[in-house]
Design a protein around this nucleic acid. Structure first.
Lengths: 149, 149
DNA sequence: GACCGTATGTCAAAATCCTTACATGCACAA
DNA sequence: TTGTGCATGTAAGGATTTTGACATACGGTC
């Protein structure tokens, strides 16, 4: 067995600490979204639609890192609550471009504020430069793993 | 609405990119563990036990960021496959200290090598210094969110 | 000793999510 | 035009995970 062939001590393994941070973030997010009666996937859907109106179900699924089927039930729930609207028929292809209703925008405003507060808390003590580098480094990591080559 | 109250563009939001990276890592990990007939939680359990023999079910659950109940089914599965052993009775309290069998150690060796390869691929192009800073920064983020104060 | 708070292992039920599958619709090439 | 490939929306099923609950066991204080 050569040195470095296996995963080392957990607190020095990038993957482990990454999961630890993601898990903590997830927990903090649903705690802060619960008062608004929103789950994390529901919030993700609203945020996506707020920033990119007209996204299809499949687009939203990719953006929220879930399957189309999961996003579809999220959309149906948000639609039933009057936060999102989708046309009955597709104008082009099969895609049904979704959009926020005024009520959806209001919910998003509250939710996004709450989530932003969580992010601020998470990054407490990190200089802007360090936050920026974290962002860039994580983007590189994600890219390295999603490349098909 | 004041500047910065809500979450900004997705690719500049730390939380979003963090989830993106974690999701990519999860996908790459199951792909590389599938040939070994191991899921990510199962691998996590083996890795924990390899590094800290005698951990209880609750300890393993905390270390793998799942509930005790989930870890319990994982343990039962690994026990049935002869990779892990637990005493029938607790020596102290209710904790049942789990340990790897020789077969479990062999499986862990293969799995840990595969996962390490994924981590290497993920960190490709990052200098050792940058990896170290990533590690430290993520640890700070996790700490900031898990503090009870 | 008796009590209360906390931690553990486990069971049952519910919710969540993914896997599989199929019917459609567009784009592109032969 | 025809067909092949790929993407989409949706439904049904199963697998996994969490939620809620309970009995037990230790550690502290009164």
């Amino acid at each position: 067995m050569h040195k470095g062939e296996t995963v080392g001590p957990l607190d020095t393994a990038v993957g482990y600490v990454l999961k630890e941070a993601a898990s903590a973030l997830r927990g903090a997010m649903d705690a802060s979204l619960r008062p608004l009666n929103l789950t994390v996937p529901q919030y993700a859907c609203l945020e996506l639609l707020g920033q990119r109106p007209g996204l299809s179900n499949a687009d939203l699924a990719r953006g929220a890192f879930v399957t189309r089927q999961s996003m579809n039930v999220v959309l149906q729930g948000l639609e039933a609550r009057g936060l999102v609207i989708r046309p009955a028929e597709a104008a082009h292809g099969r895609q049904l471009p979704a959009e926020l209703t005024p009520a959806g925008r209001a919910q998003l405003q509250a939710a996004s504020t709450a989530v932003h507060a969580v992010e601020v808390r998470m990054c407490a003590g990190l200089s802007p430069a360090r936050q920026k580098e974290l962002l860039a480094t994580l983007a590189v990591c994600a890219r390295n793993l999603t490349e098909t080559t």
